[in-house]
């Protein structure tokens, strides 16, 4: 059963890294600015989950704080970019 868990964690790391690469593809080829913002949102979500899986595998609790910081920073950045797209400026 240890082998099954090892395979599952490996698969999860590869799948999340591939998902982050696909989000980067959408950031690069996105035809409009809102597509790039959406790709950034997906990218930070994939990175957060990858950090959690890596923390499970390495057995260190320090990556929880890293993923919490990524979640907060990603939320603030996406809201700020959406506000910029809506109004043309962030602080009115």
């Amino acid at each position: 059963m240890t082998l099954v868990l090892w395979l599952a964690l490996n698969f999860a790391q590869f799948a999340l890294a591939l998902a982050a690469c696909l989000a980067c593809v959408r950031i690069v080829i996105g035809p409009r600015a809102q597509d790039r913002v959406l790709g950034l949102d997906a990218l930070y979500m994939c990175t957060l989950l990858l950090f959690i899986v890596t923390g499970m595998r390495l057995g260190t609790p320090f990556l929880f704080e890293a993923s919490l910081v990524i979640a907060i920073g990603g939320f603030v950045s996406t809201v700020t970019l959406a506000k910029f797209l809506l109004r043309g400026e962030v602080i009115e």
Partner: peptide, 10 residues
């Protein structure tokens, strides 16, 4: 659970 979550994200 880990395989399910990573597959859904992918």
């Amino acid at each position: 659970l880990v395989v399910l979550g990573s597959s859904l994200t992918l």
